[in-house]
Amino acid sequence: MKSMFKTKAILVVAFFNALLASTVVNAAPPDAITGKAKAQICFACHSENGISISSDIPNLAAQPPLSITYQLIQFRGQQRKGGGMEAITMALSDQDIRDIAAYYAGLPPPPAKSGNADKIAKGQQIAGTQYCNSCHGPQLQGQKHIARLAGQSPEYVTTQLKNIRSGVRIDMDGTMGSAARGLSDEDIEVLATYAASLN
């Protein structure tokens, strides 16, 4: 009984911290409506509804706004490369990036994708043992600058995890590099299947 109370208390604290995290002072408030206009250049690949046209392109719908912002800034600074994003982001200002992020963040999340039940169960187990949930959230929904994996294209997640594991994609502070280092190809496949199965 007492321990249940403790768990609840932790979750309540987590909830309020999540609320507060979103109130960190920003320059001009990000504007999703302006963002939609600015995001026209993204639609050809990521679509207006944030569900991408191809499995090797990430879904952006319902990503945490800071997650999109951080990736776009890293593409612009060429710390992250791929998909021609370095060129596309070159002309974007910080405000453009924040507005585009606000637009995609406000869209309904991608639908869950059904998959092999054994793989999904295995993926869920690995998400726990590898502490994926400790940053990406209990349903891999993302938070702060940390990406939403729920409903993400499994091909995309697989490619990115392998790139992070090999060092082709450099992570921000070493956490993801460390986390990916111990994953086998099979681990990555089932993690991606599990993530895609969430909504």
Partner: peptide, 22 residues
């Protein structure tokens, strides 16, 4: 736990204790 996640306390799965955005 994996090497990088050794030594986690009771709050080791608490997402509100994840790193700040740099």
């Amino acid at each position: 736990p994996a090497t990088w996640a050794q030594g986690r306390s009771a709050d080791g799965m608490n997402p509100s204790l994840a790193p700040n955005p740099p």
